[in-house]
Amino acid sequence: MKKIFLLVPLAFLSCTHVSPYDKEDLATQKMLAKPLSESAAFESHVFSIREGSFGAEGGFGGGCGCK
């Protein structure tokens, strides 16, 4: 599984290239992986409390307790 994950980006290496000067659109707020980062952090917290699975969201879970 892990090996496949490492290979996926390598497969792209030869066929795509975005130059630094072409990153204008990628630099906008709405193109971030998590444009609403604060709410995403809270959300993933809520989901980890309310649901049985967690992880691989690239976000911040952060300890917790709430009664």
Partner: peptide
């Protein structure tokens, strides 16, 4: 009615790719 929110390890942010 005490509902407990279990802790999750802090995990990292590998998606902060561009900026």
């Amino acid at each position: 009615k005490k509902l407990l929110f279990l802790a999750l390890t802090p995990i990292i942010v590998p998606y902060k790719a561009i900026a």
